[in-house]
């Protein structure tokens, strides 16, 4: 059975085509104002990669922030359920905690033994603690995401950044730069601040022995290592972290 899952996020739109539970095609683009068109484009790309015809797809399941806009979808589910489904299958069907750092929101989902969502938390309507925050900060430090990440990894002596609000953090960073603090230390401080923000969310859950990491944020090595340091525990990054949600949607029964 061939199914497609489309995750329309605030920053990127992802699509995964699944043939009997196995990924046969996937695609990703930036989300723009015309969500519907973007979603359709991604779907076509994924179809091409999978080498099938559109008619063969039996079900299109859409998820993510803009899920309702995609009219082609047969069903809508929320990204919370989708990430839980995807994460559960990818981690051999065991109880776990999934941390999804996306563009505009960060979610922590507790998945039970049977793959059910036990509890979840989402950050507030604010960019603090999300991928967007890191992007802005990378801009301020005049580097890109990879550079930002490696800068942070090379720091020996991270500074303390007090604000998690992106607006205030920006001015704090600028004043640090002008007082000629090494950029590495500033970058490390920023990662620390976001990691502690995510860590507080994680600590609200009871079973935190197995933590998986996905979403765009999981592709940033510095974020992973600082998060591990903050909660002093290993975190496993799921394969293809950006596609976990779309995959989860696609395998929804």
């Amino acid at each position: 059975m061939i199914k497609a899952g489309i995750d329309i996020g605030s920053v990127t739109t992802k699509c995964v085509i699944v043939n009997d539970g196995i990924i046969s095609g996937k695609a990703i683009t930036k989300t723009s104002v015309n969500t519907e068109m973007v979603a359709d484009n991604v779907l076509q790309k994924a179809i091409k990669e999978a080498g099938i015809k559109e008619e063969e797809i039996q079900e299109v399941i859409s998820t993510g922030y803009g899920r309702r806009q995609f009219k082609k979808a047969n069903r809508f589910i929320t990204e919370i359920s989708a990430v839980a489904k995807g994460g559960y299958i990818l981690n051999e069907k065991k109880r776990c905690l999934i941390v999804d750092v996306g563009g505009q929101d960060t979610k922590v989902v507790e998945v039970g033994d049977k793959g059910e969502v036990v509890d979840f938390l989402m950050n507030d309507k604010c960019a603090a603690g999300t991928g967007r925050f890191l992007e802005i900060m990378a801009d301020v430090l005049e580097t890109d995401m990879d550079g930002f990440s490696s800068l942070a990894m090379s720091s020996k002596n991270p500074v303390k950044i007090n604000s998690t609000c992106s607006v205030f953090a920006e001015s704090e960073v600028i004043s640090l730069i002008t007082s000629s603090t090494p950029r590495e230390d500033i970058a490390a401080g920023l990662f620390n601040s976001i990691a502690s923000r995510i860590a507080t969310m994680i600590r609200q859950f009871r079973h935190t022995d197995r933590i998986f990491f996905c979403g765009g944020g999981a592709k940033i090595p510095a974020l992973k290592s600082y998060l591990e340091k903050t909660i002093s525990q290993d975190i496993i990054v799921l394969p293809e972290p950006q596609f976990v949600v779309a995959y989860g949607a696609a395998i929804t029964e």
Binding site: T78, F120, M122, D124, K125
Partner: peptide, 26 residues
């Protein structure tokens, strides 16, 4: 249990919707 934080304005409707729907799915 689901805790929602919001005020009288409508700008966070989308967020709230996601949370409530996710809660229902849960």
């Amino acid at each position: 249990f689901l805790a929602l934080k919001t005020d009288f304005s409508r700008e966070d409707t989308g967020q709230l919707k996601t949370r409530i729907e996710a809660f229902m799915e849960m």
